[in-house]
Design a protein around this nucleic acid. Structure first.
Lengths: 102, 102
DNA sequence: CGTGTAAGGAATTCTGACACG
DNA sequence: CGTGTAAGGAATTCTGACACG
């Protein structure tokens, strides 16, 4: 599942081509913690296709005048909600399981 | 469809890590026309995840003592069969379509 | 035939800084 | 704040060749 999409294997030059963003912008968005590329042993950044999609979303929001800290805040909120939903789902599954057991 | 799997975006160093093959071997298999990476404007090879899977198949066959020209022949044959199947399927579809059309 | 290696050069990427606004 | 750019260096990749077998 998600085997290709989340593998960090793409260098910044190709990400730049695919997204249309300059390398400068991509590095800056990393600095602002909007994306989290891996690094090779030599220090070269490695991105996933998921990162590329994220960058295109980010680019759109930047064009709409949003600032990096807002985008970051939004992303964090979305992630928190996601985790809450997961906890809730697991809770319900456990409840159902205990019902049957009990 | 196949959006990520066939995009040529991965450099040889990472392909080497992912497949466990040396760069030398990967370049040689290209020379023998077993794989067909793209090139950047500067000449750097770019591979897809599909290429990586191919390389792992190739590696296995090499370990079994198969020679590159045999592997190539086998690949060509498989491709020919694949295309024949496609032509046949299209032919049947057309026939069915013409039937209905009367 | 298939692969390792040393060689020299070119393409790619990295960081920190200055600039502008 | 967000981004361009020139600077210098380091990591990455490329090709052609020699070696061995």
């Amino acid at each position: 599942m998600a085997s290709y999409k989340n593998k960090k294997v793409i260098t910044i030059g190709i990400v730049s081509e695919l997204t249309g963003l300059t390398e400068r912008k991509i590095r800056y968005y990393e600095e602002r913690k909007l994306i989290f590329p891996d690094r090779s042993s030599g220090g070269t950044r490695k991105f996933s296709f998921h990162d590329i999609e994220l960058l295109m979303d980010i680019a759109e929001k930047m064009e709409d005048g949003m600032q990096t800290f807002e985008i970051r805040k939004q992303a964090k909120r979305a992630e928190t909600e996601f985790e809450a939903k997961n906890r809730m789902r697991r809770g319900q599954l456990n409840a159902a399981f205990n019902m049957r057991k009990g």
